[in-house]
Simulated assay, not measured.
Amino acid sequence: MEFDKLVHQPTRLQVFAYLYRHGETGFSDLVEELDLTEGNLASHLQRMEEAEAVAVHKEFVDRKPRTTYELTEEGRELFEEHIETLEALIGDLDG
């Protein structure tokens, strides 16, 4: 069993888990909730977007730009497969 490096990286795993649970979320909310710097989060989100695991939505709200992120279907599947791998490892440990 191997982990997908996109999902397994600790910061991205936090992002995957948060978006999986909460759905579409604003950039500033992710920064605050995950206690990450904007630059660190942006680089991980870019990597996830390049892998087509996250969708980016940009709009203006009251003349201010608002960027939100949500997992794509592929992103959800990658996260679920990661969880299944973890569960299989735990099952193997139980004997």
Results as ranks from 00 to 15, higher is better:
Glu50Gln: 11
Gly95Val: 03
Ala51Gly: 15
Met48Cys: 08
Leu93Val: 06
Phe79His: 03
Gly91Ile: 02
Met1Gly: 14
Ser28Cys: 06
Ile83Glu: 08
Leu78Val: 04
Arg47Cys: 05
His8Tyr: 12
Glu73Tyr: 11
Thr25Cys: 09
Arg76Thr: 10
Leu89Pro: 01
His44Gln: 10
Leu41Arg: 01
Leu30Met: 09
Ala17Leu: 06
Phe16Trp: 06
Val7Cys: 02
Thr67Asp: 04
Glu38Ile: 04
Leu86Lys: 08
Thr68Val: 07
Gly39His: 12
Ile83Asn: 06
Glu33Pro: 03
Phe16Gln: 00
Ala88His: 10
Ser28Arg: 15
Arg47Asp: 10
Glu33Val: 04
Val61Arg: 15
Leu78Ala: 07
Leu34Arg: 05
His44Gly: 00
Val7Asp: 00
Val61Thr: 13
Thr72Asp: 03
Ala42Cys: 04
Gln46Leu: 15
Glu70Arg: 15
Thr85Trp: 01
Leu13Pro: 00
Asn40His: 14
Pro10Ser: 07
Met48Asp: 03
His8Arg: 08
Glu74Asp: 13
Glu50Ser: 11
Leu36Ile: 05
Thr68Glu: 10
Leu86Val: 07
Arg12Glu: 03
Lys58Ala: 06
Thr11Gly: 00
Asn40Cys: 10
Asp4Lys: 03
Ile90Met: 10
Glu24Met: 13
Arg12Pro: 01
His22Met: 13
Tyr18Gly: 00
His22Asn: 14
Ile83Tyr: 05
Thr67Arg: 12
Glu80Tyr: 05
Ser43Phe: 15
Val61Gln: 13
Lys5Trp: 07
Arg76Glu: 07
Glu24Ser: 11
Val7Ile: 09
Phe16Thr: 01
Leu78Ser: 04
Thr85Gly: 02
Asp62Lys: 13
Glu59Phe: 14
Phe27Thr: 01
His8Pro: 00
Leu34Trp: 11
Leu93His: 07
Lys64Val: 08
Glu33Thr: 07
Ser28Ile: 11
Tyr20Asp: 06
Lys58Gly: 02
Arg47His: 14
Tyr18Pro: 00
Asp35Gln: 14
Arg47Ser: 08
Glu77Val: 09
Asp29Trp: 08
Gln9Met: 10
Leu71Thr: 01
Gly95Ala: 08
Asp29Val: 12
Leu13His: 13
